[in-house]
Design a protein around this nucleic acid. Structure first.
Lengths: 263, 263
DNA sequence: CGCGACCTTGAGTAGGCTCAATGCCGGTGG
DNA sequence: CCACCGGCATTGAGCCTACTCAAGGTCGCG
């Protein structure tokens, strides 16, 4: 029942990097994307002071560790990560994935300690904020505080969907649903190369741990989707061969399409 | 695979009741409980104006409906409810339970529309707030806005745990875990009659839909727990016969014990 | 070339599912 | 007072989805 071996990589992120400040918020690359709501000038100025640096993290490094308390908050600038929990015997449940624009570490800042871990899936760049800055934000910027709450509510929504999948969908439906989600998210961020084609830096073990399935069964299910000519999955690249067909087995209803805030 | 029949009860809550304002916040019965953090005088005054009335809802009535957009926010004063999602074919996943002190409807206030439904399990009394009031709260009361965010973060945490259970625990572990959670929550609210004895107004179907199991299997699992002399479950009353034993199967690690805010 | 990380496939098992009765109890109407 | 009904719990039987164990296979890399 426990998952097989689990070669933990040591944290390789270099905290010294936090000192260098490379991308000024004024020129934040995410602001160009149309899924993000623009800041007011005043908000932008504050956020620029709220941001104390940048962190680059290598694929496989730990951003947060369950049980630790963290002094930092991050916004993902580029790269992918995933948030997960472990059972004492090693069983792992992936809770969600973190994409550019996602705000991470709120739980740790608001409560005393982290109840989950986060690990980088690819090399990443993160904006670093101090925990105390969050309090300044709440005191002076109602709009931004509202945005923080908005983001928290949205991640709750995503968890709701995930729980519905894991609790009530069949393996096939779960896989299809997750793949649609990945494709949708990646396209919103304009990370997709060609249409219906996305680089996803995860292994089937990640998918299994996300969906509450075993590795073997995940593999078979993915292959069945391939044989049905709905997808193809090679070398970390997902191609939606028949997007409508896939959406159909997934019971997919699309992503919310309004703009979202970010910090 | 779809759940059997699902006799929907019509909403029976009487919106007229909202006009009557019975319990002034100054004398809110929840403030006596030690798990809740006290308000400052100023906050209390604001909250009293934020609250626009009370709603009493009968057991079985719908507080929110998936897809609708809601003008209200509530804090549970007394009674139990549950939040859930449905698949088109009727499969149901219960996401979490709402207890006194819980703040509900935030998702609907912050986003455009509700992505889940909420149904009362017992007769309830709720404090009613207007959606726009939330904005006033954010503009003028940083402490309270922070509390709202705290509550959102906490419910995310609870979902994380739930997802871990449903995705990675066995049926036995899941049941034990959920029952420990109920007992812990109820005791914090001093709803427990005798120690280790709690009235829980749900059926086994609710448990099944919470844990992603079938009704039959839930029943057998509960009976196995009974035969192991860990619990007894009669007429909606749970008794923890062997609390340590149960905590053991559940892998239970206790509830966070600090005080929590409420609105 | 060998090794590690990942994917694939076969075989056998079991946990959990469905279908189908049955039992129990409280409420209702005759 | 009794018969009946609806909602819930319980139990048996049989099946199947998903799990475990165990081999390979492939590919990239030092």
């Amino acid at each position: 029942m426990p998952r097989p071996s689990n070669k933990k990589k040591a944290p390789t992120a270099d905290p010294q990097d936090a000192a260098k400040r490379q991308v000024p918020c004024q020129r934040c690359p995410l602001r160009k994307l149309k899924i993000f709501r623009p800041f007011t000038a005043e908000e932008l100025t504050f956020v620029a002071t709220f941001k104390t640096g940048e962190l680059t993290a290598e694929a496989g490094s730990m951003l947060f560790l369950e049980g630790a308390s963290s002094a930092h908050l991050y916004t993902v600038l580029s790269g992918w990560a995933f948030r997960y929990k472990l059972l004492p015997d090693g069983r792992r449940q992936i809770l969600n994935y973190c994409f550019p624009g996602d705000f991470i570490g709120l739980q740790g800042s608001v409560m005393e300690e982290m109840q989950h871990s986060i690990e980088a899936l690819s090399d990443m760049v993160l904006c670093v904020f101090q925990r105390e800055g969050l309090w300044r934000l709440f005191e002076s910027y109602a709009g931004l505080s509202f945005d923080v709450t908005w983001l928290a509510a949205r991640s709750e929504q995503i968890l709701d969907q995930q729980l519905l999948s894991v609790g009530r969908r069949s393996a096939m439906e779960r896989c299809a649903h997750l793949l649609m989600l990945f494709a949708g998210r990646a396209e919103g961020l304009e990370l997709a190369g060609a249409p219906n084609k996305v680089r996803i830096p995860i292994t089937q073990q990640h998918i299994a741990d996300t969906l509450g399935l075993s590795l073997v069964h995940t593999n078979r299910t993915l292959n069945r989707l391939t044989r049905k000519k709905l997808i193809s999955w090679k070398a970390g690249t997902l191609r939606l061969v028949d997007r409508d067909g896939l959406a159909d087995v997934a019971g997919w209803e699309g992503l919310p399409d309004g703009q979202r805030p970010y910090i």
